[in-house]
Lab assay of single mutants.
Amino acid sequence: ALRETGVIEKLLTSYGFIQCSERQARLFFHCSQYNGNLQDLKVGDDVEFEVSSDRRTGKPIAVKLVKIK
């Protein structure tokens, strides 16, 4: 799958939103999709991810998040 990059724009307890670098979009992500310690993730962090689609709504979502050092 194609990896994309973006910036954490909003972060809540169990989910957040990424502002994409490659496209004009804000993508939802669930915190279970982040492969690191959530305490280390904060607004403004650069992340890399794959784009999938929500099974219920069909909308694009970010999965398999990795923080870019």
Rank of each mutant, 00 (worst) to 15 (best):
Q24S: 13
F28W: 08
K59W: 11
I68F: 14
D40R: 05
G36H: 05
V66S: 07
G16K: 00
K64H: 11
I61A: 12
N37C: 09
F49T: 00
Y34S: 09
G6F: 00
E4F: 07
Q24K: 11
I68H: 06
L12E: 10
D46I: 05
I8S: 00
Y15S: 03
F28P: 06
E50F: 06
S21Y: 12
S53T: 13
D54M: 15
A1R: 02
R55P: 09
A25C: 10
D40M: 07
R23M: 08
G44H: 13
G6I: 00
L38G: 06
I8K: 00
Q19W: 09
V51H: 11
G44R: 06
V7W: 04
Y15L: 04
S32Q: 05
Y34M: 12
D45A: 05
R56C: 10
D54Q: 07
R55N: 10
I8L: 09
L12W: 04
R56A: 09
E48F: 04
K67G: 06
V66E: 11
D40V: 03
L27D: 00
V7Y: 06
L41I: 05
R56S: 11
V66Q: 07
K67W: 03
K67H: 02
L11E: 01
K64N: 12
V47L: 11
T13Q: 02
L2M: 15
K69N: 14
A62I: 04
R26L: 13
L41H: 01
K59L: 06
H30M: 12
R23Y: 07
A62E: 01
Y34A: 04
C31K: 11
C20V: 11
R3V: 05
V43I: 12
C20E: 05
Q24W: 04
L11N: 03
L12I: 12
K67E: 04
S52C: 15
Q19K: 01
K42W: 03
R56H: 14
H30Y: 10
Q24N: 14
I61Q: 12
E48C: 06
K64D: 15
R55V: 10
I68E: 02
Q24L: 07
L2T: 15
S32H: 04
A25E: 13
H30N: 14
D40C: 10
G58R: 04
G58K: 06
K10Q: 10
T57R: 13
L38F: 12
K42T: 12
K64A: 11
T57S: 13
I8P: 00
T57H: 08
F29M: 02
C31E: 14
D40A: 05
Q24H: 04
K69D: 07
E9Q: 11
T13A: 03
S52H: 14
G44W: 04
Q19T: 14
L27P: 02
A25K: 15
V51D: 01
K10E: 03
A25L: 12
R55W: 09
E22P: 03
R3S: 03
R3C: 03
I18Y: 00
D46M: 07
L41P: 02
N37A: 10
K10N: 06
I68Y: 15
H30S: 07
T57W: 07
E4T: 13
S21N: 15
L12D: 08
K69M: 11
E22D: 15
A25G: 05
Q33P: 06
I18T: 01
A1D: 14
G36R: 08
G16C: 01
H30I: 05
K42L: 12
S32D: 13
G44I: 00
T5W: 02
A1M: 04
H30Q: 12
E4K: 09
V63N: 13
V51N: 04
V47S: 00
L2D: 04
Q24A: 10
D40P: 04
K69Q: 13
V66F: 08
Q24E: 08
E4A: 03
C31I: 02
C20P: 10
A25R: 08
V7H: 10
A62V: 10
Q33M: 13
K59E: 13
V43D: 06
N37E: 07
L38E: 09
F28A: 10
D54L: 15
